[in-house]
């Protein structure tokens, strides 16, 4: 299932949280060789984790971590502006309608439905919160994965060559794209909305006016 959890609520899900930060270490340090910080428990964290971001996590049926990603609004500190500002057209991208998506991570052995499920979660955020775009930093190897799940980003700028190529990309999310990733993930739209409501509250009829 998809879970939407803010940083200040991660402690309600200690096992899932530990697994997320460990899988991030496996992906970003071990597999991609990024210069990230991993603590003595094998968990990867950076300064943006301290800013109370919104995480979207795929929880496997056995309770384990299938994959995750992290969101922050571009009105505050974000990686694309702080570190990769030279790749976004010469000035920061700032709008409450544009959020940054980073640390897109898949657990070892995660099936293709997990990546698609996470993308679907991103689509729910856009649709329910009025967000128009996500921006994010990603590695050349992710391009293929994003394309395979039917949600390829537009590239704003890139640097480096080959496997070391790092890009800043952006995602919009049309209704068709949503239907496509929902299909790839094997999740009914009503199920996806129900998970979203479980995290952010189910709309109830207002008291009569």
């Amino acid at each position: 299932m998809l879970r939407y959890i803010h940083g200040d609520a991660l402690h309600h899900h200690p096992d899932l949280t530990r697994a997320m930060f460990r899988d991030r270490a496996r992906q970003f340090r071990d597999r991609l060789g990024w210069p990230v910080t991993v603590d003595d428990r094998g968990e990867e964290r950076d300064g943006y984790d301290a800013l109370n971001p919104l995480y979207v996590l795929w929880q496997n049926p056995d309770g384990g971590h299938g994959g995750s990603m992290r969101f922050l609004p571009t009105t505050g500190p974000v990686m694309v502006n702080d570190i990769f500002g030279h790749l976004t057209g010469g000035a920061p991208v700032i709008s409450p309608l544009i959020w940054e998506c980073t640390r897109f991570c898949l657990a070892p052995g995660a099936g293709p439905h997990v990546a698609a499920g996470l993308m679907l979660g991103g689509g729910e955020i856009m649709r329910n919160f009025g967000i128009r775009h996500f921006v994010g930093v990603f590695d050349a190897r992710m391009v293929r994965i994003y394309r395979a799940i039917g949600a390829p980003p537009d590239i704003l700028g890139s640097e480096g060559e080959g496997r070391d190529r790092v890009s800043v990309g952006l995602w919009a999310f049309s209704d068709e794209a949503r239907a496509r990733v929902a299909d790839r993930a094997g999740i009914a739209p009503a199920q996806s909305q129900a998970w979203f409501d479980a995290a952010f509250g189910t709309p109830r009829a207002a008291v009569p006016a």
Binding site: G89, I94, P96, L97, I98, H133, D154, L170
Partner: peptide
């Protein structure tokens, strides 16, 4: 030489600024 989505991000960001 950019996509319309990319253009929309530039417009969105300029609009907010």
């Amino acid at each position: 030489a950019i996509s319309e989505h990319t253009l929309r991000v530039y417009i969105e960001s300029a609009r907010f600024k």
